[in-house]
């Protein structure tokens, strides 16, 4: 049994009085212990929605309309509020995008760390502080003892994200969900933070779901990729395989759009058009208006996810090679 198994997950938001629109339209994924998965897609593809639905924290008025999220065989979506709180931040923790706003501005680092520990462990203040200092050292924060009394605004962005990572690691979770953990940081800091996350995950055998739109980061850190488009998984498989030989035209387009693949002095490639809003999805394959391989079939039917990709006209690798 896989550690985390998401089965046909649908998340719906009400539209008007009766109708609903779906932000996730049936996503499935499996994650083994210690495995690192990259979830890639444009803004609005439902990546963050997926992350929040794992912890059953979809913001009102959204709701999970169908599907299950099994963690060690236990459906998290059916747990009581109390039981799921015992899992959040304890066995599954999350790292957010912008460390400037994820730490409470009026509480010290120490208060926020100790509070996390105390929510899940019976532990004395002194022992909690000691553990917090140990974790801060693990994420390579200099003079960790004195940082406990600091307020978030006294730290730089990189240091704050390190604190957020330390908080995520406090309770030795089995799974960390990182929602674009480096997007808000300086480029130089990005690599440091990503290397830190990778190192810690490897050392402690923690599974990672890395949500990002940066295929470069995903290629370095993860073992498997899931590419999402308009609330659906369009392609999934081992990272290297997809990077080298994408089957779905959307994956191919994303890869082609990476600046490192553009020749010197040429225009950067971009996928024509933009992702449709979930309120106005085209019929059939949601990608067909932007796809150069689209046919009448694509406009009529949603392609099923088979052999790791959801496309009627996948890119044949012999064809791509020629």
């Amino acid at each position: 049994m896989a550690m985390l198994e998401i089965e046909d997950l649908h998340v719906a938001f009400p539209k008007g009085k009766k109708a609903e629109v779906e932000a996730l339209r049936g996503v499935s994924l499996k994650l083994e212990k210690g495995e690192r998965l990259g979830v890639v897609g444009e803004s609005g593809a439902g990546k963050s929605m997926l992350a929040f639905s794992i912890l059953n924290l979809i913001a009102e008025p959204g709701r999970v309309s169908q599907g299950s999220v099994a963690f060690h065989g236990e459906n998290l979506l059916e747990l009581s509020e109390r039981d799921i709180r015992g899992i959040r931040g304890n066995r599954i923790s999350m790292i957010f995008q912008d460390p400037m706003v994820t730490l409470n501005p009026v509480l010290t680092i120490g208060t926020q760390m100790v509070e996390t520990l105390k929510a899940h462990r019976k532990i004395s203040d002194a022992a909690a502080r000691k553990l917090c200092i140990a974790k801060l050292k693990e994420v390579a924060i200099p003079s960790a003892e004195s940082r406990l009394g600091a307020y978030p605004h006294e730290l730089s962005g990189g240091l704050r994200q390190r604190v957020v990572i330390a908080i995520a690691l406090l309770t030795d979770p089995e799974l960390i969900i990182a929602d674009e953990p480096t997007t808000a940081l300086d480029v130089t800091i990005q690599a440091e933070i990503m290397a830190l996350i990778l190192k810690l995950c490897r050392e402690k055998d923690v599974a990672l779901i890395l949500i990002t739109h940066d295929l470069g980061i995903v290629a370095e850190v993860t073992e498997r990729i899931m590419i999402m488009y308009a609330g659906l998984c369009v392609e999934t498989g081992p990272t290297q395989q997809i990077i080298q030989a994408p089957h779905h035209p959307y994956s191919a387009g994303l890869l082609k759009a990476l600046p490192q693949f553009a020749g010197r002095g040429t225009r950067l490639y971009q996928i024509p058009g933009s992702m449709p809003p979930i309120t106005a999805l085209p019929p059939g394959c949601a990608y067909h208006p932007r796809c150069e391989r689209a046919t009448e079939l694509c406009k009529a039917q949603v392609p099923p996810l088979e052999h790791g990709h959801a496309c009627f006209h996948p890119i044949d690798q012999t064809e791509a090679a020629s």
Binding site: L55, G89, N90, S93, M94, F96, T102, L103
Partner: peptide
């Protein structure tokens, strides 16, 4: 704000 999301994610 995100710090409230973060607090909920922590399990408070």
């Amino acid at each position: 704000k995100e710090y409230v999301d973060a607090a909920r994610v922590i399990g408070l």
